[in-house]
Design a protein around this nucleic acid. Structure first.
Lengths: 336, 336
DNA sequence: GTGAAAGCGCTAACAA
DNA sequence: TTGTTAGCGCTTTCAC
């Protein structure tokens, strides 16, 4: 069991015939080394396969330049966000450390782990943690919650204007002539409460207060499927269904089609997020698009402001969603 | 911009009135401290909010106890594996460091990053990297590739018996009376070639050599949808379609249903993986199940063997897949 | 049962 | 332009 001892800066220095400090200089791209030396150091390092020891760097620099990102692998929207965060972080000179949430890995645990890695800041996607718990973590490092509303101090929030998004959906449907528009909500999931409220208000504002109807759900396909199955017991289906996210819409859509309802002929469907599933050619879901790239940028900017510009006040950034009209919506059948 | 200076072991030691070395002892659960001292150290640490500095630990111990896991967030099967790896790694006393692959984040880059974090070993899920490239990385740390075939030395491989899996699918369909069984393959994706070969062989072995037909695809929903659309131009559809993975099967399934074909009435569909999508109630896909838990365990064991038991020879572990019969398969219509 | 001391690989201030 | 030096926070002998 030979431990593969990796070359250190000292080894590079010895081989290149310079001091170890100079090697450090060169690797940090700091000024103060002649081009010739620079070249030689790099070549020597290459030759012996040297790679900087991040642990030593972090220890010495008192900075890790790591940003922790907590997310749920199963949520396509979270994945979209993570993919947008990666390049943005790199641009700003930070590394991303992923913390996956899931069965058996709760938020507390994951936050602790990211803290142990010496993350300088954390981005939380759709966190379920209470404000109080977050505040504790926020004392240690800047925290940005995406898609989450906090009244807690110290936690920056980036989110979509969920209510406006829901209004876009309702007005689109109402504009097509729909009146019996049902909402499958997202329970206590990210943004759900405000999407539901936005739905209710928009319905009333459009004179459809009598048609307001909400079925309980969450942000999974199964909850959408279950909602439609519950509906099947009734004589008439609503002419349109607006769901709290795309995964739920997927369940609604597929279950409708499999039970013989045409979409959008019999029932129109609108989702929320515009995650990958909505964009599949055979799903082609009309949905409320959240500005993923904008959210990622805003979150990173919020972190940089705190880390490098000394901001201390809490920020709340709200981004406007937009409606993406695809093929799951059309005017209701004239017969109704 | 006050840098929040975190308490160190020295601080704990000073406050508890012991030496710093003793605090270290206590935190490592090493023998040699009285219960009273132990208690006091822990209490003091708690009081001042001390948390061990992982960077310092890694630097000093020459061990990070980190295992890097490279995966594709968009592949449900990869996500299943990651979720199985987490608890297994923890049991064995290791931390998991995630490296996400995706657009703009290639394997080389991700491997380099995990290496920089001082990962002691790496698990690669369905890697696209060539053997040669992997061998370079394998010189530094033990590498286990899941679902990948390597002839390269030094890289352990854990995979499903893809050919057998394909045979299970074909024999199930043939047993139901299907003859015209088409395969949508996975191009160069993980396991595809062997699934295709398994399909071809099983067809011939069952006297269906004349019906062998492969449509090119990959492991995405769109490739399944595209395959069905290509098929629509023809007078008759096959009575059964076997795809190289579940996502592709999803595209096949949904496109069939949307274009008016009944499943399994008109066309039977079989996927591969048994990932989350296959288990959705409204998809309920008959599929070839890969033993995710078994693969995760095998990969972790392979790593521990190398790291702690000094194994050096290359291992190849092949796990048997099994057939999960759900509702997308049935006997073909008698008319045909 | 406890403490002193050396040093992991690197950075950064200072000296030459 | 280059070298010297003092640690970062921790682990780990080796004394006491």
């Amino acid at each position: 069991m030979t431990r593969p001892v990796r070359p250190t800066m000292r080894d590079v220095a010895a081989r290149a015939g310079v001091s170890q400090a100079l090697v450090s200089l060169v690797f940090r791209n700091a000024p103060g080394a002649s081009p010739a030396t620079r070249e030689r150091v790099f070549r020597t390092a290459e030759e012996i396969g040297y790679r900087p020891n991040l642990a030593a760097q972090v220890l010495r620099r008192h900075r890790s330049r790591h940003i922790g990102v907590l997310f749920t692998m199963r949520q396509p929207f979270d994945v979209d966000l993570v993919e947008a965060i990666y390049p943005g972080a790199q641009q700003r000179g930070y590394h991303v450390v992923l913390g996956a949430l899931g069965p058996g890995r709760d938020e507390r645990h994951a936050v602790e782990e990211l803290l142990a890695y010496r993350c300088e800041a954390m981005i939380l996607l759709g966190p379920a943690t209470t404000a109080a718990e977050l505040a504790v973590a926020a004392e240690r490092v800047p925290i940005v919650a995406i898609g989450w509303r906090s009244s807690g101090e110290g936690v920056d929030v980036v989110r979509a204007a969920d209510e406006r998004g829901a209004r876009l959906a309702v007005e689109h449907l109402a504009g097509l002539g729909h009146r019996d528009i049902l909402h499958v909500d997202g329970g206590d999931r990210t943004g759900s409460q405000h999407r539901r409220r936005g739905y209710e208000r928009a319905m009333r504002r459009n004179g459809l207060g009598d048609f307001v109807r909400v079925l309980g759900g969450d942000h999974t396909e199964e909850s959408g499927a279950a909602a439609v199955r519950r509906l099947m017991g009734e004589k008439v289906l609503p002419t349109a269904i607006f769901t709290s996210n795309d995964r739920c819409a997927h369940g609604v859509l597929d279950t409708l089609i499999r039970t013989g309802s045409a979409v959008p002929g019999d029932v129109a469907v609108v989702g929320f997020d515009d995650s990958g599933v909505a964009q599949l050619s055979f799903i082609d879901l009309t949905t409320v698009r959240q500005d993923v790239a904008g959210m990622a940028e805003a979150a990173l900017d919020a972190i940089v402001e705190r880390l490098e510009q000394g901001r201390t006040g809490t920020r709340r950034i709200v981004l406007d969603p937009s409606l993406v009209i695809r093929s799951t919506t059309a005017a209701p059948k004239p017969s109704r």
